[in-house]
Design a protein around this nucleic acid. Structure first.
Lengths: 194, 194
DNA sequence: GTCTATAGGGGGATAGAC
DNA sequence: GTCTATCCCCCTATAGAC
């Protein structure tokens, strides 16, 4: 009894155009790139000012000129996520025609600026920084709102989101996406009844 | 075409009996309890030897007698998880009669020793400790194997696991379980075809 | 705007008394 | 088995030269 408002085409191939990767040279952005990168690759503990400065090819003093404290650096990254959130949601939903497939695929492969930032911030989740958890909840809610527009059944919509979040966990621990994951996505995309 | 090998009773209420909470006094166990607790509540950064010792009501020297290094402490917790894994899987699957509901409910409410340990270790995921990610992958695989025994369709089985993992993410960032989550579980439990 | 130097604090680990 | 005292390193942040 559930209807997915989509033209169910080839679900596994349609990919949206996301924000292009920027590795531009303006100091502030280079620092945020480096911070997000080290968070993704080695986690919170490894993300020291020294290491971030090293990756950004800048001195620690230079870094602290742009961001007066580590807290400020963190909020800088949260700001970037907030900034990219809307435009990425729009791009994901617009492009493929199929919201579910596009959403779930974007949960699997972090290859745009938004996903990079999002995954980096996930590494800071639940570690006492209330700002972080708040920003993450806001991001989740924004995606949920968008999914709700595309999927008429709210329960199915939530299910799709939970599956996407599950895929993030698997990525987090290095559990590779396999054929079954793709089949799950395929089934969620193609089925119009529960 | 999917058949869930279960007596589909009242899915939302059946709860298994898990391992009882131990807050016993043997130094080693108290230390592991404290370590897991601080990881869950405040994350990896806050989990210093000083803080763990404080919570375990022991001195740092005393702690380091039981676990010679922080690395050893970590592996101690991994050992506990491995130890509890099998028995918790068995308890979860045995009790309710319905594997899906039991699994998903245990993903929501961490109130047994295994879940406590598991969530704590999740805070260490993707932070460069290869042991941790390996242990987590093993735990995920063990649950997957068990779900596969209960759910005849492997795609549905994976879907159920992904939803459970998604619930963990939501818990991680303090997004409370709501009515929709319960409805998702209910639907996954009751439906026998995709 | 970027650098070096350094202060100040905290974390992990060792030594050795009890 | 548990404690105190201590060492050393690294991390954040500040000061100030260029």
């Amino acid at each position: 009894m559930i209807t997915v408002t989509t033209n169910s085409g080839d679900s596994a191939t349609s990919q949206p155009e996301k924000t292009a990767r920027h590795k531009r040279g303006s100091g502030r952005e280079r620092v945020l790139d480096a911070y997000a990168q080290v968070l993704r690759e080695e986690g919170e503990t490894a993300a020291t000012l020294d290491e971030v400065a090293r990756r950004a090819d800048i001195s620690k003093g230079g870094l602290l000129h742009h961001f007066g404290s580590k807290e400020a650096l963190m909020e800088g990254l949260l700001g970037r996520m907030k900034e990219l959130n809307e435009q990425d949601i729009a791009a994901t939903m617009r492009a493929g025609g199929d919201g579910i497939a596009a959403y779930l695929h974007s949960s699997m492969q972090a290859e745009d600026d938004y996903s990079d930032t999002f995954i980096a911030i996930l590494k800071l989740a639940g570690s006492g920084h209330e700002n972080v958890d708040q920003a993450l909840r806001a991001a989740f809610n924004a995606w949920q709102d968008e999914l709700d527009k595309v999927i008429s059944d709210p329960v199915l919509s939530r299910l799709v989101q939970l599956v996407g979040d599950g895929l993030y966990v698997h990525a987090l621990i290095g559990r590779d996406v396999d054929e079954l994951d793709l089949q799950v996505i395929d089934r969620l995309t193609k089925r119009t009844e529960s």
